[in-house]
Design a protein around this nucleic acid. Structure first.
Lengths: 235, 235
DNA sequence: CGTGTGATTGATCGAGCTCAAGCTCGGTGG
DNA sequence: CCACCGAGCTTGAGCTCGATCAATCACACG
């Protein structure tokens, strides 16, 4: 996990080196380096901002009635997300140390979209990312058992936090995972232990998991097939 | 519940009578009347379609590994939603009898958006609806207890299925609610009974609920305050 | 070398899944 | 008209899973 400390300049160079939808605005982008638990505020304060996450992880969360924190959205490297100006109710914050972001003022983005049809298309593309993430999250939360949730969570991470497929670098703490999955930390731990003991995953270290049996994670992970209650709709 | 059978013409007139973002395209809209369990297919087959739900309810669902059906999204009257051409994995279907929809071919919508800046803005508005619904659903699924989920579900319905605030017409069966909340039908029933016995809601009939104590539904409905495990982040 | 954060394990108990049974109500056919 | 049927709704009993409380461990850091 130990991340090498890089300079902001290093990341600026990295940004211009790799192609991405907003690259034409890199000139007006700001590289932001965030500490853990630091809120992603709006750089300047005028209007919202688009962000491109280059390293680390960022999450959007809410405090539920009752005081429990719920993570609504988890952003990983190469994800785009938007933070509006006001942002009542919700908090967007870094959950790794550090998190590196490129920040693009909404106004600039809008302006270019007005002028350039191709760019407008690409903007629509990245605007759909939050919905895709929400749907994925929805399916994870819709799991019955905790093992199922953890399993789906691991699968959803595969290929996003490590270049090697089947090797998952957990970017966040068990506590954050718990708040993302709406279960207790202890349950997250036990689920991971369970999966490990059954040989479905292996822990290289606390934060690195190797997926050994992908099918077992996909298929309802851990329960008998069970007679589907689903109505069979003869189409 | 007993719905009066209306003609397609009746709905066409209703459509042109009430203002809505896509009204300028009502000329090229088709009124579709769906039976329960009928899939919302793409009218013509060329490209996706935007739909405006005028009456009834429609849901998007998936079969999970394990065979359980999961409702991903629930559309209610005055909601807009998009159904793309292919639609693998997912099914969009009517869950009431009947459901009345206005269907707009994607191509027409895109074309107008290209030409008209104001319309493009409105289109972006309705394009954000699915994300809002997904977030709302996410918060409901993130509840710990079943009572909490059912309570939040009822609140999310308030003002959307009945003109009278505090009076909720359940548009779908308990089975569908269960699949939306990812709990068993029995649990949905028991939760409703519980809330009723505690005087938080009242059942006018099986499908009509009156919210008597809104706060009790909002606040974690049914558990002691509980020491929040959430880390307190001194900002 | 204490201290704090994060991870893990154990014990207990209540919530919810499951199986099972019964109820309500509208429709259908004898 | 009534018996029957099936879909939807409800309730009960038993058992499993996960929340909670509590303790311990690992490890980085000052």
């Amino acid at each position: 996990m130990k991340t090498v400390a890089r300079s902001v300049d290093y990341y600026r160079r990295m940004l211009s080196a790799q192609p991405h939808p907003l690259e034409r605005l890199d000139g007006s982008a700001t590289i932001v380096r965030c500490l853990r638990h630091q809120e992603i505020a709006n750089g300047s304060g005028v209007g919202g901002h688009w962000y491109y996450l280059m390293a680390g992880a960022v999450c959007r969360s809410t405090i539920r009635a009752g005081g429990r924190r719920q993570i609504i959205e988890l952003m990983l490297p190469r994800d785009f997300f938007f933070v509006s100006e006001d942002q009542a109710e919700e908090t967007v914050e870094a959950v790794t140390e550090p998190a590196i972001l490129a920040s693009y003022p909404e106004a600039r983005v809008e302006l270019l979209a007005e002028r350039d049809r191709q760019f407008a298309r690409e903007l629509r593309e990245i605007s759909s990312q939050p919905l895709i993430r929400a749907r994925s999250h929805l399916m994870i939360l819709g799991g019955i058992t905790a093992i199922e949730k953890v399993g789906l969570f691991l699968l959803s991470l595969d290929g996003r936090t490590s270049s090697e497929r089947g090797r998952v670098e957990l970017p966040i703490t068990r506590y954050d995972i718990a708040e993302y999955l709406a279960v207790s930390v202890e349950t997250v731990c036990r689920a991971i232990t369970d999966l490990q003991q059954r040989g479905i995953i292996a822990l290289l270290d606390t934060r690195t998991i190797k997926i050994l049996n992908r099918e077992a994670l996909e298929d309802r992970t851990g329960k008998a097939p069970v007679g589907s209650r689903a109505r069979l709709i003869a189409a």
